[in-house]
């Protein structure tokens, strides 16, 4: 059954438009003068000069973390590359001489493919890759510029004192 909608009949005051129009003009002119004189209600953030603070869990550009001896934490286990739904991580593994471990000879992230989902960070057992740099990947002019190498990712990286290999060691 059709639902009956109550439509109150507009009285002459409303149908004459004028009081309602004046009410509307009062609202807009109040907003105009308040913002013209004081900028009190203006919500605009003037971007390049002023930036909106991102929430702490913002996922930005990746960074590779380092150990105490400044070497890369990554052990080239390929878990991140496997977890990556966009297939944007390319790792070449090599042997480390000092420890019984591997290390990435090259570590590339293709930002044309990356969707910043954070699955690589979730998958990493060594706390080696993080998305907490708080930076955007800036746009570039060539495809090559959009593929970041191990050195670029390490440049933003910092020290991590998490136990290597997680709690299972």
């Amino acid at each position: 059954m059709a639902k009956l909608v109550d439509r109150p009949k507009a009285d002459l005051v409303i149908r004459s438009y004028i009081p309602e129009v004046l009410r509307g003009l009062r609202v807009t002119s109040r907003h105009f003068w308040v913002n013209f004189l004081t900028r009190k209600n203006v919500v605009t953030i003037e971007y390049p000069e002023e930036k909106y603070p991102y929430p702490p869990r913002f996922r930005g550009q990746h960074r590779l973390m380092k150990r105490e001896d400044d070497s890369v934490r990554c052990v080239a286990c390929f878990l991140c590359a496997t977890a990556c739904p966009a297939d944007c991580i390319t790792i070449k593994a090599g042997e480390r001489s000092d420890k019984n471990e591997k290390y990435p000879v090259s570590f590339e992230i293709d930002y044309i493919r990356c969707i910043f989902c954070g699955m690589c960070e979730e998958a990493c057992p060594c706390d080696a890759i993080r998305l907490d740099s708080g930076d955007h990947k800036l746009p570039g002019y060539t495809r090559e510029e959009e593929v970041l190498q191990k050195e670029d990712l390490l440049a933003k990286g910092g020290l991590s004192i998490a136990k290597q290999g997680g709690i299972l060691q």
């Binding site: 907003h31 900028r39 203006v42």
Partner: peptide
């Protein structure tokens, strides 16, 4: 500018 100020923009 005026429409912006009315709508709380710059």
């Amino acid at each position: 500018r005026m429409s912006a100020l009315i709508q709380d923009r710059l």
